[in-house]
Simulated scan of single mutants.
Amino acid sequence: MTLAKNVGIVDTGMFFPPQVQTASQMAEQTGIPEEAIIEKFGLVKKHVSDHDLHASDMAVRAALPILEKVDRNDIDVVIYFGSPYKDYQVWSCAPKIQHELGLNNAYAFEMMNVSSCFPIALKVAKDMLVSDDFIRNVLLVGGCKESHLIDYENTRSRFMFNFADGGAAALVQRGAQTSRILASAIMTDGSFHDDVKVPAGGSRMPASTLTLQERLHSIDVKDPASMKSRLDPVSVPNFVQVVKTAVARSGYTLADIDCLLPLHTKRSMFEELLAQLGLQEEQAIYLDEYGHMSALDPCIGLHLARERGMLQDGSLAVALSAGTGYTWAATVIEWGSGAK
């Protein structure tokens, strides 16, 4: 790969609202023992926003530290990859983010594939930079306020009680010296399309007094037992498959992985995934003090891995996520200018 076409991540940013919800507080709200929230849910605490801070605001704040180091006029594209739960319905927050960040030379658009979107956004940004010589810098931005979608009295949505709030950003650049984005692998099983959703507020069930009274505006699972019976046999194997495929397409093997950047899952799934990939826990980022923030998790994991010194010259990292519907996605990142 020539330097002119090398595409990599040159910087990352993250933001969290100051309010924190602890496992103890969640136990009081849910009736689930604190030990179970910590040990099974894998959640010590998470950040939650107030009613004045929205997904677009948190995306903006995550990107600001990146833009302090570059000329804002050099940003060509802004892609919002965060939660679909935004300030308003049928509304794109990407133009607001572009405007508030002062990126006057950039055009902006959104990608939405719920929690799986960051590895996909990396692929899209890379493909745009490789194919279009007029693009030099793509800013990926995301926000999440999905803690506000949870009804803690609805036990059907129990596996989503780890939903949290925050913002994340990554600057992807042609000619990057700090890293290079390698191959991706993505797979979808659309048979899960009707399992997880907010029932009311869309065209099938418009908002009404009745939908408010019946609390249909929080995220729900149609039939948890049915979804579990179909999802459990394929979830970890599909995670492993997209990692194997992405790594192989990048010219490496599982043994070459130095750092895994997964979405936040229950503790048992995280440990099974590490075992299947032949990794130790110290080779991965587990967001037990942050929770699950839709598509933001692997981007935040990348930022934390950099802060913790887990990425050396030539380190191979894998951004890994999955989103309800269901789509599994992995993108390989080689950190530093040298090869393994």
Rank of each mutant, 00 (worst) to 15 (best):
A106L: 06
Y107S: 08
Y107M: 10
Y107W: 13
Y107E: 04
A108F: 06
F109H: 06
F109K: 06
F109Y: 15
F109S: 05
E110S: 15
E110Y: 12
N113L: 14
N113I: 12
N113H: 10
N113A: 12
V114I: 15
V114M: 11
V114K: 00
V114Q: 11
S116T: 08
S116G: 08
S116F: 02
F118E: 02
F118M: 03
P119C: 04
P119Q: 03
I120V: 14
I120M: 15
I120G: 01
I120L: 09
A121C: 06
L122K: 04
L122W: 03
L122M: 12
K123G: 07
K123M: 11
K123E: 15
V124L: 14
V124K: 00
V124E: 05
A125V: 02
A125N: 10
K126N: 08
K126E: 03
K126L: 10
D127V: 09
D127H: 10
M128C: 07
M128Y: 15
M128D: 02
L129M: 11
L129T: 04
L129F: 09
V130S: 03
S131Q: 13
D132E: 13
D132K: 14
D132Y: 12
D133E: 11
D133G: 08
F134Q: 11
F134S: 15
I135P: 00
I135H: 11
R136V: 01
N137I: 02
N137H: 14
V138Y: 04
V138P: 02
V138K: 00
L140T: 10
L140A: 09
L140I: 07
G142S: 10
G142P: 06
G142W: 10
G142H: 10
G143W: 08
G143C: 14
C144T: 05
C144V: 03
K145A: 11
E146R: 05
S147A: 13
H148Y: 07
H148T: 09
H148K: 15
L149C: 13
I150F: 08
E153L: 12
E153G: 15
N154M: 04
N154L: 03
N154C: 09
T155P: 00
T155S: 15
T155M: 12
T155C: 01
T155G: 00
R156F: 05
R156K: 12
R156W: 01
S157I: 14
R158F: 01
F159G: 02
F159H: 12
F159D: 12
F159T: 07
M160S: 13
M160V: 01
M160E: 08
M160L: 15
M160A: 10
F161Q: 06
F161N: 10
N162I: 11
F163D: 02
D165I: 07
D165F: 08
D165Q: 12
D165R: 10
G166A: 14
G166V: 10
G166T: 10
G167N: 07
G167L: 05
A168P: 09
A168E: 03
A168H: 09
A168F: 11
A169C: 09
A169H: 07
A170N: 09
A170L: 06
L171V: 06
V172Y: 06
V172L: 06
Q173F: 01
Q173L: 02
R174K: 14
R174C: 05
G175C: 09
G175S: 08
G175I: 11
A176F: 04
S179P: 07
S179G: 08
